[in-house]
């Protein structure tokens, strides 16, 4: 570990903030909530600088776990479960159409909001960020079987939310 925790945490912030913000944005409802999540993640790291793993990958996984746990805590605290508005969402043939893209974003956001935080994080990391199930298992400190279960559950719910036409 570096002698100066300020310098080390500064390096961690510069290195991992962009990725953490993207993940937070995919796990939250709006940009403001994503910024809060990222800041709270690093504030927790600042309160326990000696707990941050030495290796770069270990530190990144540690920060991601904190972020996911913060999402889960927030979700439990607020008990936010947005009512589903089963709207028509997407047309495969109109992906270049700005209106269709905006509609898809809105639908995806709503569908993601229906997932539980951990399932949501795993689906996002696998389907959007492209991480393998083994990598996700290592990142989040869980078994690969559990990750597969979350992926399957998340896909099923998303499919139901996104496919349900009105």
């Amino acid at each position: 570990m570096q002698a100066d925790p300020v310098e080390r945490l500064g390096d961690l912030f510069d290195t991992h903030q962009p990725r953490l913000y993207r993940l937070a944005r995919r796990l939250s409802r709006d940009p403001e909530e994503a910024r809060d999540l990222v800041q709270e993640t690093f504030l927790r790291a600042a309160r326990r600088p000696a707990s941050i793993p030495e290796s770069a990958k270990g530190a990144e996984a540690w920060l991601v776990r904190i972020l996911v746990n913060l999402c889960r805590d927030r979700w439990r605290r607020l008990k936010v479960r947005r009512e589903a508005h089963h709207q028509p969402v997407w047309s495969m043939g109109n992906t270049a159409d700005p209106e269709s893209v905006a509609s898809a974003r809105s639908a995806v956001q709503r569908a993601l909001n229906r997932l539980r935080p951990r399932t949501r994080a795993i689906v996002v990391m696998h389907e959007i960020e492209g991480q393998s199930k083994a990598e996700i298992a290592e990142f989040l400190g869980m078994s690969e079987v559990t990750v597969r279960w979350h992926v399957a559950t998340g896909r099923s719910k998303l499919r139901k939310e996104l496919s349900h036409g009105g």
């Binding site: 962009p18 997407w90 898809a104 389907e127």
Partner: peptide, 16 residues
């Protein structure tokens, strides 16, 4: 489903 999720990726809004 993957295409749809990537199309509607919340992080792709450019609101960094």
């Amino acid at each position: 489903l993957r295409k749809l999720l990537n199309l509607g990726d919340p992080a792709g809004y450019g609101d960094e």
